[in-house]
């Protein structure tokens, strides 16, 4: 069951979670060269913080800042029942 949070609006990102036996983090971004690594890091750090490892995270980014990436991932994790 796929779960999403966020939007494709400017300065936002859409997070889509899909079931997976391992952790997969996939980033597509309009500023991939400049911030692709940073986005990947925020996603992984947040998953670490909440102790979530078996999930596929896709991030479709339209220039979201770190706090937005983090918030959208947490919302998706809660919606998907991965965390409380």
């Amino acid at each position: 069951m796929n779960v999403t949070a966020g939007t494709y609006e400017s300065s936002d990102c859409l997070i889509r979670l899909s079931p997976s036996t391992t952790r997969k983090v996939i980033v597509e971004s309009i500023v991939f060269d400049q911030f692709g690594d940073a986005i990947q890091r925020v996603l992984n750090d947040t998953l670490d913080q909440y102790g979530v490892s078996a999930v596929q995270v896709e991030c479709f980014d339209k220039g979201a800042l770190d706090y937005t990436v983090r918030a959208r991932l947490i919302t998706a994790l809660k919606r998907g029942g991965y965390i409380e």
Binding site: A5, G6, D66, Y67, T68, R70, A71, R72, I74, T75, K78, R79
Partner: peptide, 15 residues
């Protein structure tokens, strides 16, 4: 509502 709550929290915690 849940997304907004998380977004506002995340923003205020960082900025």
């Amino acid at each position: 509502k849940d997304a907004a709550r998380e977004l506002v929290r995340s923003f205020l915690a960082a900025h």
